[in-house]
């Protein structure tokens, strides 16, 4: 009888011992005091002077200024602009509405603009002021104006706007 009790208590001890080890294992490693930045940057085109916005029109042979307000909680990284044709309607914008697409057509000399700009210094708010020339000989029609922005941690935000080149 005595032996049996002793045996049981050994088992019990072992059982709680196991859980103690597990608690120790978890306890020893859960020191996550460091906070990380998990907020992506923001592209704001709601200001009155923001350009282009959804359904804006730009003219061939003229220069327009890309104006948007970029912000991040910690530090902005870079901004990229991509203007490409959407004559085939393959893609749509990221916005709520479309702007009445022209019929599908075959591109001959579509406008293509790809450029990126590093945002120097530790800025949390940056207003773009980028001059973009639209050559006179490009195809008019439906285009996408894509804005991509990163912050220093590599988070990104994207807006794809539908614009028209006339």
């Amino acid at each position: 009888m005595k032996l049996k009790t002793a045996n049981l208590s050994v088992k019990g001890n072992a059982f709680f011992g196991f859980f103690a080890i597990i608690l120790l294992l978890f306890g020893a490693c859960s020191k996550d005091a460091e906070t990380i930045d998990d907020e992506p940057p923001v592209i704001d085109i709601s200001a009155a002077d923001a350009f282009p916005v959804q359904c804006s029109t730009v003219k061939r042979g003229e220069t327009f200024t890309f104006k948007a307000k970029l912000s991040d909680n910690v530090r902005l990284g870079a901004v990229s602009v991509d203007i490409h044709h959407n004559f085939d309607h393959h893609t749509h914008s990221t916005e709520v509405n479309d702007c009445g697409l022209e019929p599908v057509k075959v591109p001959v000399n579509p406008f293509l603009f790809i450029k990126s700009y590093a945002i120097a210094g530790a800025q949390t708010i940056y207003e773009t002021d980028i001059q973009i020339d639209v050559p006179a000989d490009v195809d008019p029609g439906d285009y996408h104006f894509m804005i991509m922005v990163t912050d220093e941690e590599g988070w990104s935000a994207m807006r794809g706007l539908s614009i028209k080149i006339v």
Binding site: G77, A78, D82, I114, T150, W155
Partner: peptide, 12 residues
């Protein structure tokens, strides 16, 4: 993912 864009090799 880095903070950079590449407008040549990376096509923006």
């Amino acid at each position: 993912p880095t903070a950079r864009f590449d407008h040549f090799y990376g096509a923006g």
